[in-house]
Amino acid sequence: MTSGKDISQASIAAASGSNRAGRPLEPGLHIAATPIGNARDVTLRLLDAFAAADLVLCEDTRETAKLLAIHGIAARLESYHEHNAERMRPRILKRLADGNAVVLVSDAGTPLISDPGYKLARDVIAAGHAITALPGPSSVLAALCVAGLPTDRFFFQGFLPAKAGARDKTIAELNSVPATLVILEAAKRLQPTLDALALGLGARDAAVTRELTKRFEEARRGSLDELAAHYKAEGPPRGEIVIVVAPPQDVQTDDATLDTALAVAMKTQSASRAAADVARALGIPRKRAYARALELAPADPPHNEP
């Protein structure tokens, strides 16, 4: 008996192309998830939809064409992305009014997650057309599965703002969210983002996942400080990145406890180093500890004029 791992791409393509022709797809918009890396994660339902659709809307037609080629399916492809969405939506609505079956996909994962697809879904619903989800791969859920952090409640942030001021403001807002955080990030910005998260959220456990479902999939776990130090030493990794951060601790640190810990630490360390150590020990944002350390630090003695 042949195992699933022994099935070649060619045999998958042959089966997909020959057995799916003629299967009907109901008129309306079908929002479909595509593999996030491993092409074998495609669902049978998506292959049926590709083969029967009147039109497939893609973030990048070249990427979707590669997936179709692997599975031996031909389909009419058109681009739909943030730069042409306003112009394309009336044309798509016209097709739906004519009874077409339209499939919407992104380059990887589920459309509408960190892309403009929700505006199309909103307009399709307003126009009274059918809308259907074809669920499948998701980098958000894959990252949560391998992070080893609480999954009973999570908050999907997506990408943080690129500019430091706006990023830090957003992180401050995330500090009080009582849930595991899921954050997307570009590899080149990973280390400064981890630094900012450690400063704004404190010594929380976290995981940096990359290349999920691909050959070099990795999940690196540790505190935010530890992860920031690792990538500062090693440099930015390659691949697609998802950061998962543990929720805030239940125990709230009062000002008196913080002051006592800082007073002890600053007997032998600078305010900056003491704040970092105390924040890590108490599980509080480093920014809070450092601000209080500056208030507690003795002022420099005045210089006497000769």
Rank of each mutant, 00 (worst) to 15 (best):
I125M: 15
I243M: 11
D168M: 10
A256I: 11
N100K: 15
R292D: 06
S3Y: 14
K5C: 11
T268D: 13
A75W: 02
G158A: 03
P248E: 00
I7L: 14
S176E: 11
E305I: 08
P135R: 08
R273G: 09
P150S: 03
G222Y: 03
Y118A: 13
I31E: 02
G200F: 12
G283A: 11
R89N: 12
P236H: 08
G165A: 07
L46H: 07
Y80N: 05
L67S: 08
A207R: 00
A10W: 10
P302C: 08
G136D: 06
A276N: 12
I73A: 06
P285S: 05
S18F: 14
A166R: 10
K188H: 15
A207W: 01
K94Y: 02
L296E: 08
E234L: 09
V42P: 02
G99F: 05
A219T: 15
A281E: 14
V251T: 11
P135F: 12
I171C: 13
F216V: 07
E173V: 11
R122G: 10
L25I: 09
V105N: 11
S138E: 09
A143Y: 01
V177A: 03
I12E: 08
D152Y: 07
P135L: 08
L96F: 04
E226A: 14
I125C: 10
T209H: 00
P247G: 00
P247I: 01
I70M: 04
A196D: 13
H129E: 06
V245H: 01
